[in-house]
């Protein structure tokens, strides 16, 4: 079952569409926001709420870069690894993550604080290399700038 808060968030979007399943991504985002990630149970809850089968919901949930089907850390850092950021040295930022936090792409720090994931182009190529943390984009990354950012995130 969706929690009352989850259901309310979903209901707010419902009138925009002729079919409930159009809310699939939004519903998955809502449960991810409240529960941290999309477990099998969360998947079934969304399926029930939208009148879809769990398999149909999973075919959506497994497709997108920003939907997490596995537990993630408190802060998910999406580092752009597309060509403009690569040209401007995102590999060096990756190395810095490994040196400082001991994690590579797809890994979470043992304390559950950070998860590092690659993300295709963030559209911030004039400030490459760039990463997204929560709703914010941080460009012109250097190891020093990354250190400051990591210190700010609890």
């Amino acid at each position: 079952m969706l929690s009352p808060a989850e259901q309310a968030a979903l209901d707010a979007e419902l009138p925009h569409y002729p079919a409930r399943r159009a809310l699939c991504i939004e519903a998955l985002k809502i449960v991810q926001h409240h529960r941290g990630w999309i477990s099998d149970e969360a998947l079934r809850d969304v399926a029930l709420a939208l009148g879809m089968t769990p398999h149909e919901v999973d075919s959506v949930a497994t497709f997108y870069n920003l939907l997490y089907r596995r537990p993630v850390g408190r802060h998910v850092l999406h580092l752009c690894d597309s060509v403009s950021c690569w040209v401007m040295g995102c590999d060096g930022i990756c190395d810095h993550f490994r040196n400082r936090l001991g994690i590579s792409f797809g890994e979470t720090t043992p304390d559950g604080r950070f998860t590092l994931l690659p993300i295709p182009c963030l559209g911030d190529c004039d400030h490459a290399p760039s990463l997204m943390a929560g709703n914010r984009i941080h460009g012109n990354l250097t190891p020093e700038k990354l250190d400051r950012l990591l210190d700010e995130l609890d």
């Binding site: 925009h16 079919a19 409930r20 399943r21 159009a22 809310l23 699939c24 991504i25 939004e26 998955l28 985002k29 939208l50 879809m52 149909e56 075919s59 959506v60 497709f63 997108y64 870069n65 920003l66 939907l67 993300i119 295709p120």
Partner: peptide, 24 residues
Amino acid sequence: HRGAGAYICGEETGLIESLEGKRP
């Protein structure tokens, strides 16, 4: 309508499938 990160959703018919709530 918010997507969730997939390059193929820039392709117009993939986008439409995604907007309908299906795998794009």
